[in-house]
Nucleic acid binder design. Structure first.
Lengths: 229, 229
DNA sequence: AAGTTCCGAAACTAAAAAGTATCGTTAATC
DNA sequence: GATTAACGATACTTTTTAGTTTCGGAACTT
């Protein structure tokens, strides 16, 4: 296959055997992968054309096919790339209460990013059943990180004695991601702060045995629409 | 049904002006719509070809296009048809406890149907953003009925005094559908009974202030994998 | 300077699938 | 019996798009 040569060159950058001609623009890889994510979030995988991707990345199709041998390969790498661009979980909120931490997760930027990621996942839906590897990549990039953050916040709450140890954290940490995804993808409603508060106060807190009324007053200010600004 | 009027107008069938030639096979409409649902569940909307639909319905493309003017129109009616085939909510389980009722919802047949419906919804994902009407139809056919059943079971539990009246039923009744959808569509894991039990006992029951240990022993038999057979 | 490879743009090829038309046959009305 | 329309099958047209090729020019190595 002709492509083998290209792929070998792509991975054959070594000191002993330097490339002969012009080097590939390193920034172009990310530009293309980013364009793929954009378009998939907007239109879904099937409606994403290679011309569109090249146009968004401000390059030509040739540059794309020089790097990936097919659309299928491209999307797999794009999802992996998406994972690599996620914000580190270093910046976890730490308000002292689980309720405050959970609310703190949904800063506008985080919420927007999460919603975009879910749209990407929805756009992949049609190919997931045919490409198990892609389903796995999507899960690792989009789904797991979210549940993991929830889990860590809840584990901290257990460690601090706010939640009793026998609570079912494994299940509880999936509630918020699940309901957010359901609302965004299936019900197609915007993810508003009020909904988040309903889930936290109406389901999660009681499920974990925390009485919302007992939390410090600072976390429940009088004006509802100004909660935790 | 609304469809009858639609078809009559479409083909000019009226009581005063009976049709001249051979009549349309009435069963064929359902056969085609059923075939659409099947294929969408398996491959998704984009991979569904009109030839495939005709083949499954054991007819020709001409018969399909005689009834629907485009693939887009066909899918809208197919989702509406799906709604009409849903089992009535008359046969709600009534075991005396909310826990038993919720478990009773997931008879093998119901669970299979629910999973199929979710796959249909996933197969539609790529077109939902472009066709808001379809999103609405899908919500009405697949999502709402499920949450509605949950709500009714929980309202009965409140009426019976099992759950205190100030519980947030509006939010709680969405937990199970959401988490089932998330698991089926995004995580792509099978919907096992064990997961259902985790959600009920780990989240829903405590969230509604019901102590699982207090429920009648019959509903919690010793052998886990034989719960409520 | 020579040779090689990448760049972006565009033209091109090939396959898939939506939608249309045709045909011989069958079921209905007049 | 004649007419009309639906039936299933199949061939056809047209559009879209994945993937390839070509081109002039730019960047890099020797």
């Amino acid at each position: 296959m002709k492509r083998d040569d290209l792929m070998r060159v792509k991975s054959g950058h070594t000191a002993e055997n330097p490339v002969r001609g012009r080097k590939r623009d390193p920034g172009l890889d990310a530009a293309i992968l980013g364009a793929v994510i954009e378009v998939v979030a907007e239109l879904g995988y099937d409606s994403m054309t290679m011309d569109m991707v090249a146009l968004r990345a401000k390059t030509g199709k040739a540059a794309v096919y020089r790097r990936w041998k097919s659309k299928a390969n491209l999307i797999v790498d794009a999802v992996a790339y998406l994972k690599s661009t996620q914000v580190d979980s270093d910046s976890l909120p730490d308000t002292g209460t689980l309720r405050g931490d959970l609310l703190g997760l949904f800063k506008p930027s985080t919420a927007r990013e999460g919603e975009r990621n879910l749209r990407v996942m929805a756009g992949l839906a049609s190919v997931l059943s045919l490409h198990p590897e892609l389903a796995e990549a999507g899960n690792a990039a989009i789904v797991e990180p979210w549940a993991k953050v929830n889990r860590r916040l809840m584990e901290r709450a257990v460690a601090r004695g706010e939640v009793h140890a026998k609570a079912d954290i494994d299940t509880a940490c999936q509630v918020l991601p699940s309901m957010a995804a359901y609302r965004a993808l299936i019900q197609r409603k915007p993810f508003e702060r009020q909904f988040l508060i309903s889930v936290i106060d109406g389901v999660l807190m009681p499920a974990l045995g925390i009485d919302p009324a007992k939390t410090p007053t600072e976390t429940i200010p009088p004006k509802k629409d100004q909660v935790l600004r």
